[in-house]
Amino acid sequence: MKKLINHVDNIVDEMLDGMTAAHPNRLRRLEGTTVLVRKDAPVTGKVGIVSGGGSGHEPAHAGYVGPGMLDGAVAGEVFTSPTPDQVFEAIKAVNGGKGVLLVIKNYTGDVMNFEMAAELAEAEGIQVRQVVVNDDVAVEDSSFTSGRRGIAGTVLVHKIAGAKAAEGAALDDVHAVAESVIKNVKSMGMSLSPCTVPAAGKPGFTLGEKEMEIGTGIHGEPGVERTDIKPAAETAEILFHKVFQEMNMQAGDEAAVIINGLGSTPLMELYVFHHAIDRLLKDKDIRVEEAVVGEWMTSLEMAGVSFTMLKLDDTLKKLLDAPSDTVSWKRG
């Protein structure tokens, strides 16, 4: 394991202090917690939005804290959901009197810890609502299981719910628009190499020199199949078709698209990949104003990419294009 770190036990702590040191006018760390909030939190008269999860997915989620997106981000240990007390601190710090929306990625741990935090907040009279993002179509949906994972599509929930909250909307309305994004966003990833959780010291899985894994999650959870390495264009087709078939889209529809690098895949390759995606979009006559290509929800230093598509209607599009001013997502 070769990492630019000090002690494995201090990574999250030093990362969080490094973030506030880098962006002192934007971010503030709640003392004694792993929570970063907007410098000016709580914003009175605005619904607060809190997201979070295990660390190792940067810029998710603290990179999205700021005007027009999140009010607070809670960081767990690497790939480990944060605990209820931390989430509770975040809720208290961003509650501007209109209640707080929790944006949770669908992992048992995240759901349980955020749920417990919501129970604590409600016991103190803070209005809390939750949404659970489950955009990853790699795993079959089933009512017998805990369902699909939340991956890069989550960032679009932050953006759009954040814009709605910035308009001064009520908690129920912010909640409703977040649900509408979740209903319309689908993603799927693949990987060429594993990643190493620092405290584990060894890669989470192994892939042969000529193998790739289709459907990998952002914690290296395995996906649909392991195959020989395929060209970027063919890989794009596999991800695109799987995502597309789960969506209710017609020729002429408009979409937002994220090409998300999982960690060590160069931007060069992400654009090569998007080049293939662009053709597939044109084939289906799906309109995309500007694709979002880069690293948005990573998996430490894993090599790979995920493809996310959100079907847009006028409401979602307007909110997506609304201004936001965070470290990692600036618009308008």
Binding site: G54, T80, T83, D85, N113, E115
Partner: peptide, 15 residues
């Protein structure tokens, strides 16, 4: 356990 483990196992053992 609730405040230090996190993940799935924290809330489960904690609860």
């Amino acid at each position: 356990f609730i405040s230090k483990i996190g993940g799935a196992s924290g809330p489960l053992y904690g609860s």
